[in-house]
Amino acid sequence: MNDFDYAKPVTLSEAISTYKKYGDKARLLLGGTDLVVMLDDGVIQPDIVIDLKGIDELKKLEFDGEFLHIGSRVTFNELIDSEVVKEKFPVLWEASKTVASTGVRNRATLVGNICSAVPSADSAPALLVCNAAVVIATDSGDKEVPITEFFVGPRRTILKPGEIVKEVKIRASNKKFGGSYIKLGRYDGEDLAQVGVATVVNEDREYAIAFCAVAPKPVRAKEAEEFLKGKDLTDEVLEEAAKLAVKAISPISDIRASKEYRLYVSGVLVKRSLKTSLARMNGNGPKYGERLV
């Protein structure tokens, strides 16, 4: 680890001004489960690390009747322990449970997860199917960006030095729905996703499908969603939807899986996820959090 300075601002504006001052020589710190590993590897060598854990307003985890606000300090275990998340945002809840293991989740935050923007970020598909928005604090005020626009590429987001993600916002659905997140890892223990698929189905036969780990950034499968709109999930429809869905992805071969396997299994898992989501909407699916692979 290189030598760096450490700041722990207590207000967001203080954090922004320090961040502005140092520009790309500064790094933001939440749980550190990505950042400290990168520091240790020497792949980043900042002049200063700005710890956001002193800022109280970022601790917010609140449902205001319409939106769920997930402050950037909220950890995955806090999401898992939240009744409102479990009840109203079950896909995010299910996805949170697949992240690492409890000792990591006690520190790892959802915001850190999307800001790291690794293609396998487990929270991303859930956020994509829920149409989440990212609230970014800047020195000229807050701005809100749909999650679909937030990711730019592997480990790249739209954020610029001086910009700090304040919270992630998700609107609660007022329709009857079911959803699921399936993470395929090499095994059941702590692992990064080979493929991650989230889907949501609602009573109006509207569908949402998103993937992680199979494209340079987490993606929605819009064409498949359009195709499915208004349709019942017959076997033929599922087959066709899976075919269209995998058109949205462009997996690579890496140490975790080959491109071919990822392509094939993405199709399998889309179908499985859609069926599960439908069954859950109808009240006869497996419980949220139950293993689906």
Partner: peptide
């Protein structure tokens, strides 16, 4: 692993200053 305010964390990826 150690407990930080009662919750288990990994002290190898935690800065002491935190």
């Amino acid at each position: 692993s150690v407990l930080l305010n009662g919750k288990s964390i990994r002290s190898c990826i935690t800065l002491a200053i935190e």
